[in-house]
Each structure stands twice: as C-alpha cells, then as structure tokens.
C-alpha cells in the first residue's frame, strides 16, 4: 500500500530522515516509536504531502506522491485521516459540527452529512455528546471527536501523531481501544508514539526510529529503543 524507498528529508543541516525503507500493507496496525526528534512526525507528514522529500521515493498504491501536483493533494488527503497530539478541534463548534466540517469542506450535501456524522460519532462512542463544545469534553473525548473527524471521509489509512500525548492513562486507553477498533474494521492505522505501555498493549508491528533511521522492526513487538 505504502512504500518508502531510500527516503531522505533534511531541515537545513539536520537529517530528519536518512535512507528510510519501509513497506506498509493494507489493514496493518503499525506503531512507530522513538524519542522526540527521531523523525516520527516527519515520516507522517511526508505521507500526507505536508512536507516534501529530499531524496528517494514514497509510493502510495504505486503512485509517486512527489509527483502529485498541489491541486491534487487535497484528494490524497481525503484518503488519509490524521489526528494530532494537540487535537485541533474548532472551539466554537460542537462535536457534531467539527465532524461535519470535514465533510462540508469537501462538498458533501447537507443530507449526507446529517446521515453520516451521527454514525461516525456513534462509532467513537460519543453520539450522546454530539451537541457538546470541545471545552465541555474531557481530553480523551476531544481526541475521539478528532478521530471521528479523520474518519469522515472513510480513509484507507489513519495516521495518529502522539494522539495520547496530552492524555492520562484512562483516556489514553480509550483512544487506543478506538484505534484498534478502527483497524479491525479494515482501516490501516499508523500510530506514532513514545508511550511504551501503549505499544506494549497493542502487540503488533513496531518500527523503531532513531536519529532519522529505522533501527529496529518487530512483527509483534514491544516498545524498544
């Protein structure tokens, strides 16, 4: 599904990624671990075309994403959902409206939005909070709304960049359970984190990044640096 071939990324003199080779298959759940600055976020940003590579190739379904024009990037992003540590919900919109927003900007009709959003909120277990504003929800709930928003386009791949970074253990577990559930429903999930206990619970493929290089790959691994 996604192939990294000798991918390089530099920020001025800093080598954020060096010769990264990686293959992600459909339906996988991958934990991307490493210390801060190891290149986890950079790797995710390259997949959604937020950053450009300085060498090598990234193929998504055999399409070289460095050859995708600016005008077509939005269509790539509709196939990939993304959630962040800082959640990025719109504070003046309710849970329902935040999810609906993702569908609105892509031109979906009102009726479709009214039909789909409750289903997605139900999937993340927050239908009962559909009219709550972000400040009326817990951190875990907010992150689940963000995941719901990322799922609005029924993406084939969900990228989660430190989604539990600001959450306590209970809330983190909730988010992790949700990601696993989404993965079971067929969406490929890539979780970048440095929360060891979280990775240990998942017991799926683990990729360790260090100084911009992949230093370890485990099929059903644990958090190891």
């Amino acid at each position: 599904m996604i192939k990294f071939q000798n991918v390089k990324k530099r920020y001025n003199d800093v080598h954020a990624l060096e010769d990264v080779n990686l293959e992600i298959r459909q339906g996988e759940f991958i934990s991307l671990v490493g210390m801060s600055g190891a290149g986890k976020s950079t790797l995710l940003k390259l997949i959604i075309g937020e950053e450009k590579i300085d060498g090598g190739r990234i193929l998504i379904d055999d399409i070289d994403i460095s050859k995708i024009g600016k005008g077509d990037l939005p269509y790539l992003r509709r196939k990939i959902g993304m959630v962040f540590q800082d959640i990025k919900l719109l504070p003046k919109r309710t849970a329902f409206e935040n999810v609906a927003f993702a569908m609105e900007v892509c031109g979906h009709k009102k009726e479709k939005i009214a039909g789909d959003v409750p289903k997605i909120l139900d999937l993340v277990g927050l239908l009962h909070k559909r009219d709550h504003f972000p400040h009326q929800m817990s951190g875990g709930e907010k992150q689940r709304v963000a995941i719901a928003r990322a799922l609005a386009h029924r993406p084939v791949l969900l990228l989660a960049d430190e989604p539990t970074g600001n959450l306590d253990e209970i809330n983190s577990d909730e988010v992790l359970d949700l990601l696993l559930k989404i993965n079971q429903l067929g969406t490929t999930v890539m979780l970048a984190t440095h929360a060891a206990d979280l990775v240990n619970k998942v017991k799926k493929r683990v990729i360790t990044l260090e100084g911009g290089k992949i230093t370890k790959e485990q099929k059903e691994g644990k958090y190891q640096l």
Binding site: I48, K70, G71, P74, Y75, L76, R77, R78, M82, K88, L90, F101, A102, V105, C106, G107, R149, A150, A152, H153
Partner: peptide
C-alpha cells in the same frame, strides 16, 4: 484543519 481534511485550494 481544512487543509488536513482535504479541502481544495480554491475552497
């Protein structure tokens, strides 16, 4: 957010 959820440039 618009950018991340795939809004077109003109949108």
């Amino acid at each position: 957010i618009m950018r991340l959820v795939g809004a077109t440039n003109w949108y």
